[in-house]
Design a protein around this nucleic acid. Structure first.
Length: 579
RNA sequence: GCGGCGGUCGUCUAGCCUGGACUAGGACACAGGCCUUCCGAGUCUGUGACCCGGGUUCAAAUCCCGGCCGCCGCACCA
């Protein structure tokens, strides 16, 4: 028997949810198409995410759209050009491959491998005689894999660009604009749903590991001095299943259940915003049909975290074939990204906070004393001054009494240092960022898997009613005697009510129920001979097969309420038993 | 990327070892007709496949090579 993944993918291909891209050319690993039903399902999930994460916070979380391609500089600043690269080294005799930096760390006393270049790694491997840990063989030259997709911007252009591996950078670059257009207030959330690309070495898990996929992200900017989340009270007593970092390290993968409040108090979760989004993420996944006991939050140990992260929880859900798979990540990115972009762009990205009362502050200004420096360095002086680090100049001069620049030692006598007492009304600082980030495609597949049920050899896709791609099927009991005409009228009526409806008169009524169940249509409307006489129709519930009778005139209003969630199936009409 | 196994209608499969009557067979699905009064009914008709490229051969779904894709193991998955 094929496993659940295969049975789901069979359905997905046959009924038009998802299939491999470029199939007629044999397909390409890591790329998938969404078919007619899959596209609607995915959009519905994304729309629900918007309601959950953006709409209910519209006073401080806003959505934007930024490009997929950005110039190289952006990814230099973000650290992706450096850190999104893996150094791989292959054993020349057994042909096993290893992460060169990991290998150097484990076979030498070198701990700080992060900053090593490819040349460094090659040299260390040669000098320290690092061998293959499996067979002792000689290692080949180190090779790099950068997972960014590279391109050029403009034809015949030398202007290198990369496609983004996360939507986040666009939000950091736009931070100043959004902050100002949102009246310069914190906390501020910037959200984005969009495509990202990662040139994965060997993606193999269908819709789970893709080279191009959709991400749903929020960068929540807050004042690190005022890190409490005003909405935290609403969620503080909700429990999360988490595996803390020290347990992950020891390989103890048994989660503990802890309330959000306690998790923050006891230091498992670094701040309230992080915890708030984690709770929201849990409830979001639950609302998509993934029970909370199938969800775990795993604290990623330092060495496995991305370069920008001070804490990352992976939200994982249990899948049949692959075990626990990450559907969302919650990262505390501190001020890493803003500080990097500030440094690389030269634009001040700090925000201002007014203090309750003015404080007296000593302001130290340092100016180069050109009367001394001019004669001393003559034509070199300009170059010297531009390469000074003005950020740390004052503190260095005051503590050490000198600074070194371009091989010259400049003493504090080369500068004019003045101190003045100032009354300041506020402080400038870089906001910190907490980032919840969902993989839309993974969530969509997960939803399919949890909705997938089989009963007597028929498939029933028990999708939550608010995300089902088709909400209502309309059938004439038989396709004659005016029944199709009335059914078509009802079909039009419901379409105009804004529902996603389908009409089907082929084959027998049972066959049509089967077809509708398979794609997860929650409600079937059947028009019969009584409908012609008394204007009533049968509604049939996908999951229970229960039926109720309802007047056509009530249909639109009650179905809308049902899909809104304010009526349950039994409340739609009076119980009915077919003949 | 490496190694192993595999790839035939939408799906599942027969055929491959032993090359030729394969115009590639079946079942289910799908489309149209007839029929059909609430859960895969019946019936008639129809659409529809040898992953791609090269080689061997008089002849390739079948043998050989390469590529692509899938599965498994290794590696990778900031």
């Amino acid at each position: 028997m094929a496993d659940k993944y295969e049975r789901i993918m069979e359905l997905a291909k046959r009924r038009g949810f998802i299939w491999p891209s470029a199939e007629i050319y044999g397909g390409v690993r890591g790329f998938i198409d969404f078919g007619p039903l899959g596209t609607v399902l995915k959009h519905n999930i994304e729309e629900k995410w918007r309601r959950f994460f953006i709409h209910r916070h519209s006073d401080f979380i806003v959505e934007i759209e930024t490009p997929i391609i950005m110039p190289a500089k952006v990814f230099e600043a973000s650290g992706h050009l450096k850190h999104f690269t893996d150094y791989i080294v292959e054993c020349t005799s057994c042909h096993r491959k290893f992460r060169a930096d990991h290998l150097v760390a484990s076979s030498t006393d070198i701990v700080e491998v992060e900053s090593l270049s490819i040349e460094d790694l090659n040299r260390i491997i040669k000098d320290r005689e690092v061998r293959c840990p499996e067979c002792g063989g000689i290692l080949d030259e180190v090779k790099t894999f950068n997972l960014l997709f590279k391109t050029t911007i403009g034809p015949y252009s030398e202007n290198v660009g990369y496609s983004r591996p996360e939507a986040a950078q666009g939000m950091f670059l736009a931070f100043k604009r959004v902050y100002e257009s949102m009246r310069s207030k914190l906390p501020l959330g910037i959200a984005q749903i969009g495509r990202v690309m990662r040139n994965e070495i060997s993606p193999r898990q269908g819709p789970i590991r893709l080279r191009e996929f959709t991400i749903m992200e929020i960068e929540l900017f807050f004042d690190p001095e005022q890190s409490s989340c005003p909405l935290f009270d609403n969620v503080k007593n909700i429990s999360l299943s988490i595996i803390p970092e020290d347990k992950v390290r020891k390989g103890l993968l048994k989660p503990i259940s802890i309330t959000a409040k306690k998790a923050v108090e006891e230091g498992y979760i670094v701040n309230e915003w992080q915890a708030y989004f984690m709770v929201l993420g849990k409830i979001f996944m639950e609302s998509l049909g993934i029970p909370s006991e199938m969800q775990i939050f795993i604290d990623k140990p330092r060495e496995e975290r991305a370069h920008y992260s001070a804490q990352t929880f992976d939200q994982v859900v249990k899948l049949e074939r692959w075990g626990y798979v990450e559907v969302a990540g919650y990262s505390y990115r501190t001020d890493y990204d803003l500080s990097r972009h500030m440094k690389f762009s030269g634009v001040n990205l700090r925000v201002y906070r007014q203090l309750d009362k003015k404080i007296l502050k000593e302001k130290v200004t340092v100016k180069p004393n050109m009367k001394i420096l001019g004669p001393k360095f003559k034509s070199k002086v300009r170059e010297l001054l531009t390469s000074l680090n003005y950020e740390s100049l004052a503190s260095e001069l005051l503590s050490k009494g000198f600074v070194e620049v371009a091989g010259y030692k400049l003493s504090k006598d080369d500068f004019i240092i003045s101190r003045e007492k100032l009354e300041v009304g506020g402080i400038h600082f870089l906001p910190h960022v907490v980032e919840p980030s969902f993989g839309s495609d993974r969530v969509t597949y997960t939803v399919l898997e949890y909705a997938f049920h089989e009963k007597d050899g028929r498939i029933i896709l028990k999708l939550p009613r608010d995300i089902a791609p088709i909400q209502v099927s309309v059938f004439p009991l038989v396709s004659k005697d005016g029944l199709p005409e009335l059914a078509t009228k009802i079909y039009r009526l419901l379409l105009e009510a804004g529902l996603r409806v389908e009409y089907d008169e082929s084959g027998s009524i049972g066959r049509r129920y089967v077809r509708a169940d398979e794609i997860g249509v929650p409600i079937a409307v059947t028009v019969d001979y009584d409908s012609l006489r008394d204007g009533s129709v049968t509604l049939r519930d996908r999951d229970t097969w229960r039926q109720v009778r309802i007047k056509i005139s009530d249909l639109k209003e009650r179905l809308l309420k049902y899909f809104e969630g304010s009526l349950c199936f039994e409340e739609l009409g009076t119980p009915f038993k077919g003949r």
